[in-house]
Design a binder for these strands. Structure first.
Length: 116
DNA sequence: CGTGTGATTGTTGAT
DNA sequence: ATCAACAATCACACG
């Protein structure tokens, strides 16, 4: 039963192909657009973050924790990660559903209608 | 007082 | 099929 097989871990290039113009979070954006659910990595981070703080109360910035998370994540085995993948999978399903309603709402005529 | 920045990987939408 | 940007977290610095 190889469920979905783990597929060989291929290094995504995703190199710096383009600049990252980040819009300001404070500004309003498409509130109607469903936000992307946190990935398994983030769920792992929730647990890792607490543990890391306990063993490293001196570290506060997520920058260092993030690095530690990534490093640990790479050392984790699929079985250990699958646990978090499972959680993320459920969220993805919900997100996908939200996307359907989002598209539906868009057709509703909410896209051209600029209330306000 | 308010917000952007810093790093991590995964996921998804668009072309 | 491949690219590109965004998802959360927390403390700090600047105007």
């Amino acid at each position: 039963m190889k469920t979905r097989s783990q597929t060989a871990p291929k290094p995504l290039k995703t190199v710096a192909l383009a600049p990252r113009p980040r819009p300001k979070p404070s500004g309003k954006g498409d509130a109607r657009a469903p936000k992307k659910p946190p990935t398994a990595f983030f769920y792992f981070m929730e647990d890792f973050r607490k543990t890391y703080k306990q063993e490293n109360p001196s570290v506060k910035t997520m920058q260092e924790i993030g690095k530690a998370c990534g490093e640990k994540w790479n050392t984790m085995t699929f079985e250990e990660k699958v646990k978090y993948y499972d959680i993320a999978t459920e969220k993805r399903a919900e997100f996908e559903k939200a996307m359907v309603e989002y598209n539906k709402k868009k057709e509703s005529g909410d896209m051209s209608e600029e209330s306000d």
